[in-house]
């Protein structure tokens, strides 16, 4: 298993219209292995950029990210990514889509297929294994893309607003489902979201980010018992955390008080 991820003074600038715009940072934070860390922040605060930098998919302008003492790099094994769009390939079956990372990594086909089917079952879409993605609803498709991200038993799972394109009911279902498959303790999750309740419901820790250039305003520990159901959202402890995060947003001018 991996040691934690250490983010050291990471900054990211963009060139826009010939100007150098600071999008992110400086951010310094260590992620506890096996924990789910949610990053919440307003649009354009660089939270997706931070997530990509953590996974080695984007290079910081300054600073570095270490995983187990080694700098992270693009394509390192054991990283699963789920985007807002499911990004399923229309020319493959559902099963074929889930097997994509195994093919890219040259994994044993039979073992990969066994695992893929198990994951699809666990996510409640096993019966669609032979179907094509376009025959599935949005929520079903996103389940398939989560199965794809989990195929290689990742030590790091990156979720970039995975439920933002789904309707409210499907979102709730997915939140509960995600907790079940997150391999508690074995996978470190970085979960990007706009939704404060979703962040609190799903994570062990919430990093609250400021508007651009995004820095960490608050680091909130979510010490609520697991497994967490939707009923938790009516609990005072839950609401106290939500309120604390919202207050941060109000202070930074993201939300009107």
């Amino acid at each position: 298993m991996h040691d934690g991820i250490v983010i050291e003074a990471v900054r990211r600038n963009y060139a826009a219209d010939g100007q150098n715009v600071a999008a992110l940072g400086p951010v310094s934070v260590s992620l506890v292995p096996g924990q789910t860390t949610a990053i919440v922040g307003p649009s354009g605060c660089g939270k997706s950029t931070l997530m990509r930098i953590i996974g080695g998919l984007d290079k910081p302008t300054a600073g570095r990210v270490l995983a187990g003492g080694e700098p992270v790099r693009e394509g390192m094994p054991g990283v699963g990514v789920v985007f807002q769009r499911d990004l399923l390939l229309d020319w493959r079956t559902v099963l074929g889509n889930v097997l994509l990372p195994a093919e890219m990594r040259g994994m044993d086909r039979r073992e990969a297929e066994r695992r893929a089917r198990a994951l699809l079952d666990e996510l409640g879409v096993g019966e669609f294994a032979a179907r094509r993605p376009w025959e599935l609803s949005g929520g079903m498709r996103q389940r398939v893309s989560i199965a794809r991200a989990l195929l290689c038993e990742p030590w790091l799972l990156l979720l970039d607003e995975p439920f933002s394109a789904l309707d409210a009911i499907t979102r709730d279902q997915m939140g509960v489902l995600l907790q079940r498959v997150m391999r508690a303790g074995k996978t470190s999750c970085v979960f990007i979201t706009h939704s404060i309740p979703e962040a609190v419901l799903l994570s062990d820790r919430v990093l609250v980010m400021s508007p651009r250039p995004g820095v960490i305003l608050d680091d909130v520990e979510v010490d609520l018992p697991r497994p967490r159901g939707l009923a938790l959202r009516e609990e005072p402890a839950f609401n106290a955390l939500v309120r604390r995060i919202r207050t941060q947003f109000e202070r930074s001018g993201v939300l009107a008080a």
């Binding site: 998919l57 094994p77 990283v79 990514v81 769009r85 994509l100 093919e103 890219m104």
Partner: peptide, 26 residues
């Protein structure tokens, strides 16, 4: 090819050739 899709395959450690076959060509 969808840039986000290419990012996804890069995260899987796909080579240029693999990306061509799995994503770009289809």
């Amino acid at each position: 090819a969808d840039p986000e899709l290419l990012l996804l395959t890069r995260s899987m450690g796909a080579s240029r050739w693999q990306t061509l076959r799995a994503i770009r060509l289809p």
